[in-house]
Simulated assay, not measured.
Amino acid sequence: MSMDPLVVRARGLWEELASVPVSFGSAGGVSVGVSPTSRICPAGWVGVVSVGGSAIVTAPGEGAAALVREALAMLPVAAVTQAEAVRGVLPVARVLGPAALAYVSEDRFRPAPSGSLTVEQLPGEHRELRGLEERAGEEDSREAGLWEITSPAFVVRDAGEVVAAAGYRSWPSRTAHISVLTAPAWRGRGLARVTGSAAAAHALAAGLLPQWRARVPASRRVAVALGFEEVGAQLSIELR
């Protein structure tokens, strides 16, 4: 049985980011490698990524790798990116995530109609985007990561002010990591879907794989509405 092309491409991305020869097993399971330079988690942390029913893990040293390998063997693959399950088998100081990993191909993409909204393009470093981040607050702005985009920003205005924006950062393996941010007073009105749709369409037109990584249920619902398929999850762990 052939594997979903989205899963194949997503696995290739995270294997590259691991910066060590680890691979997702075809029959499930968890592969653990030592990678002090792993890009799937903060430096010195343990990174766990599951895609398509198997997982890869990077640890900063041999001792941590041995500990993690033994502990995660006690969990089903579906649980290795669940914070509470991991806390039950490892001495965890802090976690980041889990975040769902969703991807879309051109044939599955469902672009959002803009309706009466006008979507405008701005340079990714435009000062008006920084104003939107200030209005959204530090936590939401950090989650969105809009300041990292390398694409144009796709924005919606109200009374001349940018109230929603989306764009993407170019990642390895020809991946477009999408960022979406909406001002608090404008949430729930479909702006994330419209701006996110514009960013995803731009990425697809460039031959890139759009990636939507999100923890917040509302953001995950936007991705699903646009045709993105959740194929995995990511969790970062700082050991005590």
Results as ranks from 00 to 15, higher is better:
Val57Gly: 02
Ala73Pro: 01
Ala73Glu: 05
Gly196Cys: 07
Ala18Asp: 10
Thr37Pro: 04
Arg69Phe: 03
Ala165Arg: 05
Arg130Gly: 05
Gly188Asn: 03
Met1Tyr: 06
Glu128Asp: 15
Met74His: 14
Ala218Thr: 13
Glu229Asn: 03
Val95Ser: 06
Val224Ala: 09
Leu239Asp: 12
Gly196Leu: 07
Ile40Cys: 01
Phe109Thr: 04
Arg189Val: 04
Arg39Cys: 14
Arg108His: 13
Val216Arg: 09
Ala73Gly: 04
Ser197His: 00
Leu208Cys: 08
Ile178Cys: 14
Asp4Gly: 04
Glu138Val: 13
Ala201Gly: 12
Val20Leu: 10
Ala78Pro: 04
Thr175Ala: 06
Val49Gln: 02
Val163Arg: 02
His126Tyr: 12
Thr195Cys: 15
Ser19Gln: 06
Pro152Ala: 13
His126Ser: 15
Glu15Trp: 01
Arg135Glu: 01
Ala66Met: 11
Glu148Cys: 08
Tyr168Met: 09
Pro217Asn: 00
Glu139His: 09
Leu75Tyr: 09
Val22Lys: 07
Val80Met: 08
Leu235Phe: 02
Ala223Cys: 06
Ala112Glu: 15
Arg9Ser: 13
Gly232Pro: 06
Glu229Leu: 07
Val92Phe: 03
Met74Tyr: 14
Val20Ile: 10
Thr175Gly: 03
Ala100Val: 07
Gln82Asn: 15
Leu122His: 07
Gly115Asn: 08
Thr118Pro: 07
Ala73Met: 01
Leu6Val: 11
Gly137Ser: 14
Val162Asp: 00
Gly160Cys: 03
Leu226Ala: 05
Val68Lys: 09
Gln121Thr: 15
Gly25Ser: 12
Glu15Pro: 03
Phe109Trp: 06
Gly28Asn: 02
Gly97Asn: 08
Thr118Cys: 13
Leu146Asn: 10
Asp158Asn: 14
Ser179Met: 08
Thr150Phe: 12
Arg87Trp: 05
Val194Ala: 11
Ile56Leu: 00
Ala18Val: 11
Glu128Gly: 08
Ala185Met: 06
Ser19Tyr: 04
Gly115Met: 05
Gly145Ser: 09
Gly227Asn: 02
Arg215Ser: 12
Ala99Pro: 06
Glu62Pro: 04
Gly47Tyr: 11
Ala102Phe: 09
Gly47Asp: 15
Glu229Cys: 04
Ser105Trp: 05
Val30Thr: 01
Val22Gly: 10
Thr118Gly: 13
Gln234Lys: 07
Thr58Tyr: 03
Trp45Ser: 05
Arg135Gly: 00
Ser141Glu: 13
Arg169Asp: 13
Val194Lys: 07
Glu16Val: 10
Phe24Arg: 12
Gln121His: 13
Ala136Thr: 11
Glu16Met: 08
Ala93Glu: 15
His126Glu: 13
Ala18His: 12
Ala199Ser: 06
Gly145Trp: 06
Leu146Val: 11
Val46Met: 02
Ala165Val: 05
Val163Cys: 02
Gly115Ala: 08
Gly207Thr: 05
Ala201Ser: 15
Phe154His: 03
Arg11Thr: 00
Ala201Lys: 12
Arg39His: 14
Glu120Arg: 12
Arg240Tyr: 01
Ala59Gln: 01
Ser23His: 09
Pro36Arg: 01
Thr182Tyr: 13
Pro111Arg: 04
Thr175Gln: 03
Arg94Ala: 05
Leu101Val: 07
Glu161Ile: 15
Leu90Val: 05
Thr58Cys: 03
Leu129Phe: 05
Trp171Glu: 15
Ala65Cys: 00
